[in-house]
C-alpha cells in the first residue's frame, strides 16, 4: 500500500515538474502570439538572457530570488526595446516577423558566444532534497511549480482585473475599434511584448540553477514551448494552462514507461492529433463552446 502511495506521489511530482516547465517555457511565447499574432523565434534567447543575468547577479552576491526578478526585468526591458526598434515594423506580416525574430535569435546566440564564452559555471540548486521510500526529489522543483502557478494567477488578475488587461483584450479582439475608442494600442503592443519577454526571462532565471549555462541553452525550451502554444492556442489562461497539464501527464507517463525518447515522441504525436482535431487549440475550442 505505501509502495503504491509512493509511486503515485512520484508520478504526481513528475507531472507537476513537467507542468511547471511547460507553463514557464511557453507563457511568454503564448502572450506574444495570442495578443499580437507575432511568432517570436527569439523566445529562447530571452530565456537565455534571464538565465545569464540571474547567474551573474547571484555570483555577484545577491540572493537568488532577487537575481531571478532582475533577470525577468532585464529581459522585459530588452523586449520593449526590440519591439520599439524592430518588431513594430512587422505587424500584420506574420511570416516576415517570424524571419526577423529568427534573425535576432541567431545574432543574439552567436553574439553571446563571442562575448560571454561557451559555458559558465552554474550557481548550484538551492534547498536540498526530500525522500519518499525509494525516491528522492529536489525541493527547488516545488518552488518552480509555485512560480508557474503564481504566473498563471498573476496573468489572470492582470488581464481580467486591471485597466491594462481590458485595453489589452480590446486590442487583441479588434485593434482598429480599440484605437478609435482611445486605447493606446501602440503602447499596449510594446507592453505586451515586454511582458512576454519578461516571462521568458523569468523562466530562464528560475531554471538557471538547474541547467548548464550556454548561449544555446534557450533552444532546450523552444520545442516544448512551441508545442504547448500550438496545443493550447492563442490564449494563455484557457490555452497554455490546460495544454501544459495534458502534455505533462502524457510526457511523464511515456517517459516513466519507455524513457526520454518516447516522452518526446508522445509530446509530438499529441501535437499532430490536436492540430488535426482542434486546429485552434484548446482555447479556440473552449471559445467556440462558450459562444
Amino acid at each position: 500500500m505505501t509502495a503504491f502511495v509512493y509511486q503515485f506521489l512520484a508520478f504526481a511530482y513528475q507531472v507537476a515538474d513537467v507542468f511547471a516547465f511547460l507553463v514557464l517555457a511557453a507563457g511568454g511565447l503564448a502572450i506574444i502570439f495570442g495578443m499580437m499574432g507575432i511568432i517570436n523565434m527569439a523566445h529562447g534567447e530571452f530565456i537565455t538572457c534571464g538565465a545569464y543575468v540571474t547567474t551573474a547577479l547571484v555570483r555577484a552576491g545577491l540572493p537568488l530570488p532577487v537575481g531571478i526578478v532582475m533577470g525577468a526585468l532585464f529581459a522585459g526591458v530588452l523586449g520593449i526595446a526590440l519591439e520599439r526598434t524592430i518588431v513594430r515594423r512587422f505587424y500584420n506580416r506574420p511570416i516576415d516577423s517570424l524571419v526577423v525574430t529568427w534573425g535576432v535569435s541567431l545574432i543574439a546566440t552567436q553574439g553571446a558566444l563571442l562575448v560571454l564564452g561557451s559555458a559558465w559555471t552554474s550557481v548550484g540548486t538551492p534547498l536540498g532534497s526530500i525522500g519518499f521510500g525509494d525516491y528522492s526529489f529536489a525541493l527547488y522543483r516545488l518552488v518552480m511549480l509555485a512560480v508557474a502557478i503564481g504566473v498563471l494567477v498573476g496573468l489572470y488578475l492582470l488581464f481580467m482585473k486591471t485597466r491594462f488587461g481590458v485595453h489589452a483584450r480590446a486590442t487583441m479582439q479588434n485593434p482598429a475599434m480599440a484605437r478609435a475608442l482611445g486605447v493606446p494600442t501602440e503602447r499596449i503592443y510594446a507592453q505586451t511584448f515586454g511582458l512576454g519577454a519578461a516571462l521568458a526571462g523569468l523562466a530562464g532565471g528560475v531554471y538557471a540553477p538547474t541547467l548548464t549555462l550556454s548561449p544555446t541553452m534557450g533552444t532546450g525550451f523552444v520545442v516544448e514551448s512551441f508545442v504547448t502554444v500550438v496545443v493550447g492556442g492563442a490564449d494563455v489562461l484557457t490555452g497554455t494552462a490546460p495544454a501544459s497539464a495534458v502534455l505533462a501527464i502524457i510526457r511523464a507517463a511515456c517517459t516513466a514507461a519507455w524513457g526520454q525518447v518516447f516522452g518526446l515522441i508522445g509530446l509530438l504525436v499529441t501535437v499532430c492529433i490536436v492540430i488535426r482535431v482542434l486546429p485552434e487549440g484548446f482555447s479556440g475550442w473552449l471559445m467556440r463552446r462558450r459562444a
Partner: peptide
C-alpha cells in the same frame, strides 16, 4: 537513450 538537447531529467532520475 536521451535525445540530444534534452535538459530535463526528473523522470530519468526517478527511473
Amino acid at each position: 537513450l536521451i535525445p540530444l538537447g534534452v535538459s530535463q531529467f526528473g523522470q530519468t532520475i526517478q527511473n
